[in-house]
Nucleic acid binder design. Structure first.
Lengths: 205, 205
DNA sequence: ACGGAGATGATACGGATGTACCATCAAGGG
DNA sequence: CCCTTGATGGTACATCCGTATCATCTCCGT
C-alpha cells in the first residue's frame, strides 16, 4: 500500500479552508478551486476527499456548526461556574453575537446556508432544525431552573422566553453583521431583555 | 420617434419577475436569462432596461423593500384605527412574519440580499441601514406614545424595547422561513413578548 | 413619405465552474 | 524485487453566465 493519509483530518483541513475563504468572499462566490488554493492543495484533492461540491458544503456546514457549538459550550461552562443562571444565559446569548471575526464568520456563513436551505431540501434536512432546537431546550432548562430558584419575574413562561431570547439574539446578530447596529448596542438590547425576564438583581456581584 | 415605452413601468415588471423567480429558486440561482423568461421578454430587453446584473439586483431590492413597506404601512394604518397602540404594534410585527407566500418571499430575498451585502459594499450601501432604522423609529414612537398613556409596564425603555421586538421578529421570521418553527408558534412567542412590554390588558376587546 | 431614433431580437464571446479522465508517484506485502 | 493500490497532479470538457455586437423593426416628426 502507498502513503496512508488520515482522511478525516484532511477533510477537516479542507472544510476549514472553505470556511475561511467563504467568510472572506461570501459563500456564493466560492468555488472548488478557491477552496483548493486556500487549503494549499490541488483541485483534484478537493474532489478526492469530497466527491462533489454539495458534499463539501454539507460537511462544511456540519463542521461550522460543530466548532461553534464547542465554543458556545466552553463559554457557557465557564460562566456556569460563576454567579448564577443569569450569567449563564448572558454568556450563551452574548457568545451568539457576532463580535469577533470568528463569530462574524459563523453568522455570515450560517445565514448563507440558511438561505440556501430555503430552496435546497438536501441542505434543509441538515442541522438547521436540530441545533437551534437543542439550544432552545438548553436555554429553557436553565430558565426553568432559575424559575425554581425564584430568580425570574412572575408569569414568565420559560419555553416561550427561551425561544424569544434566541430569536432576538439571532436577529440582533444579523443586524450587527450587516453593520446596521454595533455589537455594544446589540448587547444593550439583550441586557434590557434579560431585565424583563429576570428579577431585579440583589445579590449579584 | 418610434414606439415610446414607459421605462419605469417596464423596469418594475422586470424587477417583479426577478422577485418571483428568485423567490422560487433562490436568488443565488437566478440569472438574467431566467428573469427574462419569467418576464416574458428577451434577454436583450433585460439588458436594455438594466444595463448590468448588479443594477438589476439593486433595483430589485429597492422594489422589494418598497412593496413590503407599503404592505406594512397599510396593515399598520388599518390597525391604527382600531383598539390602541398594542394592536398597532401587533400588526407591525405580525406582518413582518413570513406567513403567506408574499411575506415568505420577502423574508427569503431580503435575507439573501443581506448576506450578499456582507461582502458587497455596493449592496451594503443600500436600504439595509435606512429602512430598519426607520421601522425602529416608528415602533419606538408608538411605544413612547403608549408609555405616555400609561399602557406599558414600568421601567420599559421604548427605544430598547423597539429594537428588541424588531430583532425578535426578524429572528422568528428566519426560523419560520427555514421550517424550524411554525408561524403560529412564532406568533405565540411574539405575543408573549408583548405581554412583557405592555401592561396586562383590562379594557381590551 | 421618409429618415431617424428608440425598442427589440438573435447570437457571439470570453471567462468561470463543476466534474471526469488519464497519468504518475509512493509505499508495503507477496 | 515488483506489483498492487491508495494518493496525487494535470488537464480536458461541457455548460452556463454576464456582456457585447450586429441587425431589424416600428413609429413619430417634418
Amino acid at each position: 500500500m502507498p502513503k496512508r493519509v488520515d482522511h478525516a483530518e484532511r477533510r477537516t483541513e479542507i472544510a476549514e479552508a472553505l470556511v475561511r475563504v467563504a467568510g472572506r468572499r461570501g459563500l456564493h462566490a466560492v468555488g472548488m478551486r478557491d477552496v483548493a488554493a486556500e487549503a494549499g492543495v490541488s483541485l483534484r484533492l478537493v474532489q478526492y476527499y469530497f466527491e462533489t461540491k454539495e458534499k463539501l458544503l454539507l460537511y462544511g456546514l456540519e463542521h461550522l456548526a460543530g466548532k461553534f457549538g464547542e465554543r458556545l459550550a466552553t463559554r457557557v461552562r465557564a460562566a456556569g461556574d460563576g454567579p448564577g443562571p443569569r450569567a449563564t444565559v448572558e454568556a450563551l446569548l452574548m457568545t451568539a453575537l457576532p463580535t469577533d471575526e470568528e463569530s462574524r464568520t459563523f453568522h455570515h456563513l450560517y445565514t448563507s446556508y440558511a438561505v440556501l436551505a430555503v430552496t435546497d431540501r438536501t441542505l434543509a434536512a441538515q442541522p438547521f432544525i436540530r441545533n437551534p432546537d437543542a439550544a432552545e431546550g438548553v436555554l429553557a432548562a436553565v430558565l426553568r431552573q432559575a424559575q425554581a430558584a425564584d430568580l425570574l419575574r412572575p408569569g414568565v413562561d420559560a419555553h416561550l422566553a427561551a425561544a424569544g431570547l434566541l430569536a432576538m439574539s439571532a436577529g440582533l446578530g444579523t443586524s450587527v453583521l450587516v453593520g446596521q447596529r454595533s455589537p455594544e448596542s446589540a448587547a444593550a438590547v439583550l441586557e434590557d431583555q434579560l431585565n424583563r425576564v429576570f428579577r431585579a438583581a440583589d445579590a449579584g456581584g
